[in-house]
Amino acid sequence: MADQALAAQSAFSELKPVQSAALSIEVRDGLTIASIAAGKGKAADVRAVMQKAFGIDLPDRPLRVEGGGISVIWHGPDQWLAIAPRGAGDRDLESELAALLDGIAAVTDQSDGRAVVRLSGSCVRDVLAKGVPVDLHASAFASNGVAITHASHIGIVLWQIDETPTFEIALFRSFADSFAHWLAHASVEFTAG
């Protein structure tokens, strides 16, 4: 176990949480994230292992699946991001999955490389429209939809959790404060006053 004195630092130092029906913004720290890239010709094997271990069908298009205590985000052809709360036991998906997928997939820890933020509320789509050039309208994008795209020139992976709607956005850690700055700018009309 890690030295308790060595505190983990959030990627977001400047993000102001928001909490209202119209819009809530919340940082998701404490996640363990690992990327999975199937070896050449091994995608089927990887699917089988993941099905067996977690009861999930790895998506072959931009979708999110959940099961067995993890969620998996499509992250390109034969590539996925597996996500779970690190929890009290300091879960480490990289080592877990590396053991399961040894020889058939490259597994890489991304827990710290990605900062994740959760947005929810009736105005979320209006906020996101100010930076994300993907059609998130209910008729075009539904729960468990995934998009790898950008928000105001900052690369993101975005997925929808529910119909509230609630979205989660993962981005590279070093961009977190710039992203937060944009998000504040984009949401100020719904949070002002």
């Binding site: 298009r61 931009p62 390109g76 052809p77 050039p133 993907v134 998009a147 790898i148 795209t149 950008h150």
Partner: peptide, 11 residues
Amino acid sequence: PCCGERGAEEF
């Protein structure tokens, strides 16, 4: 082919 229709600025 993976992501669907996107603007050229992503490429």
